[in-house]
């Protein structure tokens, strides 16, 4: 079988072949094809690429990076490549930026099947096309067997924030309504259910998706979106806590309004997990001025990744930094950040 050799990372002929034959066909940006040490990209004002709208000259830059080490590399509904593109695209989208360019760095363990790498890269290409971003810079390192767990990917992303957009986790205002873009917990349980040692089969599929088009649709109908966050690791509960703390506000949510798919609920009940703490890769939570909420919600319903969007609560002034949950039976409790790893119950 065709495998990654240490020599693929040497910088010699094999490295060139790998770049030419495996990476470039999937990432066709002319900037990348030059294979220079750095991508020289167009000024923002003329950076319209693919499906992107024209970028205003007054735009500010948004820049972010994230590394992906998910195990297994492939899972129902996604793979490390789709995560590597969507995760970084979403980080840009969550500050209201239009994602434009990505870089991709691959740390590959010696012996990885070439076919696996090819599948991951093809998935990145498809996700990048869906998001409308170009991969314009890249790097490949091969480490000795045992030096990495098959494949790690780092992506960095550059985006443009239009004038007038001020989205930040510290921007939630009392009175804002809290909108969740869809059901929670799909990604975490899809990955978990494929992990070794957990003997249950399911149809759970990851929700990994680029959310930038959803965000543009939201911003088109209202600039009064104060906070956007994608509740990834640590789940919705952790994200809401971060927002409450950074905004010096309280957030109250209603348990009965939080969508959770039936199979996710069942798996959580069985394993002793709380869906509020399970990771998502294609959901966002937004704090929106109350008078704008209905329009934003309508706009979200028109996007494939926002169909199940719903209002789950509101921002309050007190108690500062806390997240309160009204339970299904009418009680109230605190929702804290996730402490340590979530573990299944034993009794």
């Amino acid at each position: 079988m065709d495998r990654i050799l240490l020599a693929h990372g040497s910088g010699g002929q094999l490295s060139h072949d790998l770049i030419r034959d495996l990476f470039l066909p999937h990432f066709p940006a002319p900037t990348l094809a030059k294979l220079d040490d750095a991508a020289v990209v167009q000024p923002l004002a003329s950076a319209a690429t693919g499906a992107q709208p024209n970028i205003s000259r007054a735009s500010r830059l948004a820049f972010t990076t994230d590394s992906y080490v998910v195990k297994p590399l492939f899972f129902n509904g996604g793979d490390i490549g789709r995560l590597a593109v969507c995760g970084t695209v979403n980080d840009l989208a969550m500050v209201g930026a239009t994602p434009l360019y990505l870089s991709a760095g691959f740390v590959i363990e010696e012996g990885l099947e070439m076919e696996t790498l090819r599948r991951v890269v093809a998935s990145m290409k498809a996700s990048a096309e869906e998001a409308g971003v170009e991969v314009v810079a890249g790097d490949t390192k091969v480490v000795e067997r045992g030096g990495a767990d098959r494949l790690f990917i780092n992506t960095a992303g550059l985006g443009a924030v239009p004038p007038g957009i001020e989205i930040s986790a510290s921007n939630a205002q009392p009175g804002d309504l809290v909108i969740l873009s869809g059901a929670i917990g799909d990604h975490g349980l899809a990955v978990l259910s494929e992990r070794e040692g957990l003997a249950f089969k399911s149809q759970l599929a990851s929700d990994a998706a680029p959310l930038n088009h959803l965000v543009s649709a939201m911003l088109e109908v209202s600039p009064e979106i104060h906070v956007l966050r994608d509740p990834t690791r640590g789940g919705l509960a952790t994200t809401l806590n971060e927002i409450a703390r950074q905004s010096q506000a309280a957030i109250a949510i209603e348990e009965s309004r939080i969508p959770v798919h039936e199979d996710v609920r069942a798996a959580c009940e069985m394993l002793g997990y709380d869906p509020l703490y399970v990771a998502n890769e294609g959901k966002l939570v937004a704090m929106v001025a109350p008078h704008a909420a209905e329009a934003v919600l309508q706009a979200m319903h028109g996007d494939p990744y926002g169909k199940e969007a719903t209002i789950i609560g509101e921002v309050m002034a007190q108690p500062v930094g806390k997240v309160l949950l009204r339970t299904g039976i009418g009680g109230t409790r605190i929702v804290d950040m996730l402490a340590g790893e979530m573990l299944p119950r034993i009794c």
Binding site: D274, R326, T327, G328, I329, G330, G331, R333
Partner: peptide, 9 residues
């Protein structure tokens, strides 16, 4: 009991 907020009821 805590998760469903039963004590306060």
């Amino acid at each position: 009991i805590f998760k469903h907020g039963i004590r306060q009821l």
